[in-house]
């Protein structure tokens, strides 16, 4: 564990807490893409198949349970909670994400570290996470102004993988045999997808104005 990875995990945790706060405090999920939440639930379920077979550390196990639990809870809330579900932007959140799921799974069948059930699903989860934010970014552009908590949620979600890139650079420099190309390339793509969001987020912060994404 190094400081970059810890910062990345904490930033990721903060993004989840901000989203839970927004939904719980405002009893609303307006501006949040259910499809991105469902993609993230798939990412965590596919990535943490080793939850019960490989014990790495208490921290690792607890964080996996937190990410799986929170993503499923948010999906449940947005689908079935009688108050929250009414504020879901159903007509704006129309990204056909099964194309993304199919493409990522196909890529994982071709490109993986080892051809085993767990490794293919791990690679699938890495590729899927890289594009999981797309429905959310499309929804933000369609829904015009973005409320603060939603903007912060997306910001932290994007920042966490940027910390992971620093972690991979650090590990590459300090650990003799560390190579993880699948994570690194996907992590770069994932972070690059946030580039324009980060730009408009910075502008809104600098001008102390509402976050506006161009349609």
């Amino acid at each position: 564990m190094n400081i970059f990875r810890l910062a990345g995990d904490m930033t990721h945790l903060i993004s989840v807490l901000v989203l839970l706060l927004k939904i719980y405090a405002t009893k609303s999920c307006s501006g949040i893409s259910l499809k991105t939440q469902e993609l993230y639930a798939m990412v965590f379920l596919a990535r943490y198949l080793d939850l019960f077979s490989d014990f790495i550390s208490l921290y690792n196990t607890v964080m996996k349970l937190v990410f799986i639990g929170s993503s499923l809870a948010i999906v449940w809330c947005m689908r079935y909670h009688r108050v929250v579900r009414r504020s879901y932007d159903r007509e704006l959140d129309t990204f056909r994400y099964w194309i993304l799921v199919g493409a990522c799974f196909t890529l994982a069948l071709v490109l993986h570290e080892k051809f085993s059930f767990q490794e293919v699903f791990w690679a699938f989860s890495i590729y899927l996470e890289a594009v999981a934010i797309l429905p959310q970014l499309v929804l933000l552009q369609r829904s015009g102004n973005v409320d603060n908590l939603t903007g912060q949620y997306v910001f932290f979600l994007g920042a966490y993988r940027a910390f992971y890139i620093l972690n991979w650079i650090y590990r590459y420099l300090t650990e003799p045999r560390f190579t993880r190309w699948i994570s690194c390339v996907s992590g770069l793509v994932q972070t690059a997808l946030y580039a324009d969001f980060f730009y408009y987020y910075f502008i809104s912060w600098k001008n102390n104005a509402k976050l506006q994404l161009p349609a």
Binding site: R5, D54, F55, I56, N60, W122, R180
Partner: peptide, 10 residues
């Protein structure tokens, strides 16, 4: 089972 599996990251 404790492993130092390459997948030690979240």
């Amino acid at each position: 089972v404790i492993t130092d599996s390459a997948k030690d990251e979240l």
